[in-house]
């Protein structure tokens, strides 16, 4: 059964990829990108990487679809383009060569799930055997991400933080009247149904984001996914009620504050553990017992990740969606 599902999903993936190349309507292509992300997320899921699958579904299918659409909105030209009649042999040769080299490279990779391969023999056995005992967190992925590899995760959060700052610097210059929404667009269809449905759905999405955030110790999920889902709720609000309305709920100054707050919480936990006599980001010293300390540390760190990811995603979306068409 698993084999059948895998084969079907991989076939769909290949067909979707070909479709993305062949179809000339950019809206449909972006939707196909979302399908592509869904399919790869489902494949991750069948390979038991549920946390990765959640991230791929939320970021790949959700946020990047919306951002690509926002980019498309900045372009004047929505028309379908006829494909170029000229044949480009050089790019084809480059692509084929690169592909062949990559495929050749995969021959040296260990088999999927090979117990003798390098990733399975160094630190992984320790994590798998000791994670619950040392951190008290049933979801090993969270334990590795937030505790054992906390320093790497801090780096990732800082990367996201930097990306948010960079987008603000590049696209921050915006139109004068963000609050002046509506009134100018008379031809819009009546979307009463969407409005009411969104009002029912948005609180559910937010609640679910909080569940993913705080249940990440026990099930799939964590700060990254929760931040993205939470920002998706605000983005849905902004799509249905207008950018001005969304910016009135979460002003830009609050977003900038939250962006830094998340990183500050993460780094602050590290400093706190330094002062309490441990190494940087060693949560064991935060409470009387090791497991309790780890628990507090992981919770705080995930919260920091969630806040920063949420704020940066929204910052990027507002920056993209708020620009006038050039």
């Amino acid at each position: 059964m698993d084999l059948l599902i895998d084969i079907s999903l991989l076939t769909f993936l290949a067909v979707t990829a070909i479709g993305i190349i062949r179809i000339t309507n950019l809206f449909a292509v972006i939707m196909l990108f979302a399908i592509f992300s869904f399919l790869s997320a489902t494949l991750f899921m069948t390979m038991d990487a549920v946390d990765v699958a959640l991230t791929e579904a939320a970021v790949g299918a959700g946020i990047s679809t919306v951002l690509m659409l926002a980019t498309l909105a900045l372009n004047k030209d929505h028309n379908e383009k006829q494909p170029d009649k000229n044949r480009h042999w050089l790019p084809l040769a480059v692509v084929l060569t690169t592909g062949a080299v990559l495929v050749y490279g995969t021959l040296d990779l260990p088999d999927f799930g090979d117990p003798a391969s390098a990733p399975q023999t160094h630190v992984a056995p320790h994590y798998i055997e000791k994670a619950i005992e040392e951190t008290g967190v049933p979801n090993i992925v969270t334990a590795v991400l937030a505790s054992y590899r906390g320093f790497d995760t801090l780096g990732e959060v800082v990367v996201i933080f930097t990306a948010g700052i960079a987008v603000l610097l590049l696209l921050g210059g915006r139109r004068e009247d963000p609050l002046d929404d509506g009134a100018k667009d008379k031809r819009v269809p009546q979307n009463l149904v969407l409005r009411i449905v969104s009002k029912i759905v948005i609180p559910v999405i937010m609640l679910f984001a909080l569940y993913v955030q705080f249940h990440g110790d026990y099930g799939p999920g964590g700060g990254f996914q929760a931040g993205v889902i939470m920002s998706a709720a605000i983005i849905l609000y902004s799509l249905v009620f207008g950018l001005g309305a969304a910016e009135r709920i979460i002003p830009k100054s609050v977003l900038m504050f939250l962006t830094s707050l998340g990183v500050l919480i993460f780094a602050g936990v590290g400093i706190a553990s330094l002062f309490l006599g441990g190494n940087y980001l060693n949560y064991s010293v935060l409470a009387s017992s090791q497991v309790a300390g780890q628990h507090i540390g992981i919770l705080l760190v995930e919260l920091g990740v969630g806040i920063t990811v949420f704020a940066v995603m929204l910052t990027i979306f507002f920056a993209f969606a708020g620009r006038e068409r050039s």
């Binding site: 269809p189 009546q190 979307n191 149904v193 969407l194 449905v197 029912i200 759905v201």
Partner: peptide, 24 residues
């Protein structure tokens, strides 16, 4: 049940929005 409720609300809404966008 939650998944069902979610689909039960959003799926017809999406269909409706799609049809109205097509008409407009």
């Amino acid at each position: 049940a939650l998944i069902f409720l979610f689909l039960f609300i959003t799926s017809p809404a999406a269909t409706h929005a799609l049809a109205s966008a097509a008409v407009h």
